[in-house]
Design a binder for these strands. Structure first.
Length: 362
DNA sequence: TTCCTGAAAG
DNA sequence: CTTTCAGGAA
């Protein structure tokens, strides 16, 4: 029995009944692929369900505001995926007559669709024989061929492309792509692969020499840089309603389009005097003396940055001057759930709720 | 190179 | 408990 047959038979018997496998709707297949980029199935699944319900068509997605889309995406990370999804939906409505383009060559022109997603969608939705090569697939192939090229290298991608094209000659391209990804997720896992139940064990070079753990050869990883954030958590009461001051994050840095608090960033571990010296503190609270010792500290790890964050609570009664209302938003507590926040800020809110363990959400 | 998070590993 | 890891596009 040829290896590809064994793989595809295994896939048809053992594939998980995931919601996006229950549809032939190219739009929903696209959504699921974007959500699953850099995201595990268990984490992405509930997001897919809610997203598909809230935005059932390209038109629905294109009609929504970016903030609405980000709100649905809140907590998933890599928020550019949500912004790009929204942008691409508008392109599809404006330039493609509300229909998802039917080839990988056209799909790849859309925001947020790269070689992997273009091939995945085109192969699954349109039967195009285009290999979809992600980290899972590269791991499977590197082990199968004991390939020395590093993960993500052009060499390894080329090897994958050629081998998978051959597999697609006698099988549904979407099944071949999904079978390889499913094998990588369920059997040929990063650690402790389950070679004893692997459908393509008999052809696997690494298995034959017991060298599974040597492949794929890892790429070198960059070291994260440290950043130091001092957040001012300003609360007050206006017209009997408690509010908190938020700031929408701008372009050119992390979390763009999401919300956090007025921020003092320092180059090194902040000191109380560094805070009083900052422009923001001098303009808002020149008579108040900050204490980092009494601030809430949270550490937050991103791919390329380690954030060290202190949260200083102040009542806005102490404010010397008015806030710039263009930049800073006074938001009543009961409207906070309309705003998308990064996980760090959600964690801060959760922490406050636990510490106060009473009525106030802040 | 840069973007984020939750699960896994230590 | 803290740190590392997995996962594509621009």
């Amino acid at each position: 029995m040829p290896i590809t047959h064994l793989l595809i038979s295994w896939y048809h018997e053992s594939c998980r009944p995931l919601p996006w496998r229950m549809t032939t709707n190219p739009y929903l297949i696209w959504i699921s692929e974007v959500i699953l980029q850099q995201t595990r199935v268990d984490q992405g699944n509930p997001y897919y369900q809610r997203f598909a319900e809230r935005f059932p068509t390209v038109t629905a997605l294109a009609s929504a505001s970016e903030a609405d889309v980000l709100l649905q995406w809140q907590g998933l990370g890599y928020y550019s995926r949500a912004r790009n999804l929204h942008k691409a939906a508008r392109t599809i409505v404006d330039k493609y007559d509300c229909q998802l383009p039917g080839s990988s060559a056209e799909l790849i022109k859309l925001s947020g669709i790269g070689p992997y997603t273009a091939s995945a969608v085109a192969s699954i939705a349109f039967k195009e024989p285009s290999p979809a090569i992600d980290g899972n697939v590269m791991r499977v192939m590197a082990r199968y061929y004991s390939a020395d090229s590093k993960v993500n290298s052009p060499e390894l991608k080329k090897l994958c492309t050629i081998a998978i094209r051959v597999m697609m000659q006698n099988h549904h391209p979407g099944d071949v792509n999904q079978a390889l990804m499913e094998l990588g997720a369920l059997i040929c896992r990063p650690a402790a692969p389950m070679c004893t139940v692997c459908p393509i064990q008999q052809g696997c070079s690494s298995f034959s020499t017991g060298s599974q753990s040597k492949f794929p050869v890892p790429a070198q990883k960059a070291k994260p840089r440290n950043r130091y954030f001092v957040y001012l958590v300003l609360t007050g009461i206006e017209r009997e309603a408690p509010y908190i001051v938020l700031r929408k994050r701008a372009k050119g840095d992390i979390w763009q389009g999401l919300h956090d608090f007025p921020l003092i960033e320092t180059k090194e571990t902040p000191t109380d005097s560094a805070i009083t010296d900052s422009l923001l503190w001098k303009s808002l609270l020149p008579t108040v003396r900050p204490s980092l010792l009494h601030a809430t500290y949270l550490k937050h790890q991103l791919t390329h940055q380690t954030l060290h964050c202190w949260f200083i609570r102040q009542s806005t009664e102490n404010l010397s001057t008015g806030l710039n209302e263009q930049e800073y938003l006074k938001i009543p507590f009961d409207r906070l759930h309309h705003f998308p926040f990064p996980r760090l800020i959600q964690r801060y809110f959760e922490l406050r709720r636990t510490m106060d363990n009473d009525d106030a959400p802040i």
